[in-house]
């Protein structure tokens, strides 16, 4: 079985994240880039299956600037067999539609039985890419899974939807996304890091995939305005001297919050 795991380089949520107010793009220099944790968990699902089924091939795939290669390589160090990096300056301002078309083309080119992604990236929090890919690849989608069972011909799992818990299953090939309910990813060990250097790492351009990034005959979603909100400022801070609770109650009453 061939499993493609989509991973993404994101700004570390534990640092300040910035957008460039000129271009509206993420300011990649402003914060530490990391492999998105939810993508690592998605990779863990694939690697756990590979641990138990020797005939499993795990490919990590990412569409990201050239500079993200090191981050993507972490997926190889964790245990993926190969990596596909779609790097093209023309894709820097890709909207969700172009991103989905490009990824779908790369997934088709690599070939797959199962695509596993995180349910929401930490930066964009869009969460629509898995379903868009399923539509473009003409396969079922099963998203936001909180448990996953993979067999030779199918994938199934549980998903928490608004107002209930759902059991779903789909024949392969399929696209699934997983939530944080799934286990933490393994750490790459020294052996893994050394082995990663010898694993296939393919870098492809939009043209390699037959994608024309500047295709204006397609409708785009564009950013028309961006503004930084003034940071919140601290208000009153007191040290409890036995009246802290009462003082909060007074604050709430004064501000008509109770």
């Amino acid at each position: 079985m061939k499993i493609i795991v989509l991973v993404k380089e994101v700004p570390d949520t534990y640092g300040e994240r910035k957008l460039d107010l000129e271009t509206g793009l993420a300011d990649r220099a402003a914060s530490e880039p990391v492999l998105d944790e939810i993508g690592e968990r998605a990779l863990e699902v694939a690697l756990a299956h590979a641990d138990a089924h020797a005939d499993t091939e795990v490919v990590v795939m990412s569409m990201a600037p050239e500079s993200a290669a090191t981050t993507i390589r972490k997926g190889l160090a964790m245990g993926a067999g190969s990596a596909v990096h779609i790097a093209d300056p023309g894709l820097a301002a890709a909207d969700l539609g172009l991103t989905a078309r490009t990824l779908a083309a790369a997934i088709r080119r690599t070939g797959f039985d199962l695509v596993i992604t995180g349910n929401l990236s930490t930066d964009g929090s869009g969460g629509v890419i898995p379903a868009m890919l399923a539509e473009l690849l003409e396969v079922p989608n099963a998203t936001a899974l909180t448990s996953v069972e993979i067999t030779d011909g199918s994938v199934s799992g549980t998903r928490d939807v608004d107002g209930g818990t759902m059991r779903v299953s789909a024949p392969l090939p399929a696209v699934v996304s997983i939530t944080e309910a799934l286990p933490d990813a393994r750490f790459p060990n020294f052996k893994g890091i050394m082995a990663a250097k010898k694993k296939p790492f393919e870098t492809v351009s939009a043209a390699d995939l037959g994608i024309e990034p500047e295709d204006l005959s397609a409708a785009w979603s564009i950013m028309t305005a961006i503004a930084e909100k003034p940071p919140r400022t601290a208000g009153t801070k007191i040290t409890d001297e036995g009246d802290g609770g009462t003082r909060i109650a007074e604050f709430l009453i004064e501000n008509r919050l109770v």
Binding site: D95, L96, G97, A100, N119, G124, S125, G126, G127, V128, I129, P130, A131, M132, L133, A134, E135, L136, N141, T143, A144, R159, D160, V161, D162, A218, A219, W220, S221
Partner: peptide
């Protein structure tokens, strides 16, 4: 709605019709 099911429906619809999508 940007609910779990809503996102999937909107995503597949946008991909099928080629319409641009703005999320959340």
């Amino acid at each position: 709605s940007n609910s779990i099911d809503g996102r999937d429906i909107a995503g597949r619809f946008a991909a099928r019709t080629g319409a641009p999508i703005a999320v959340d």
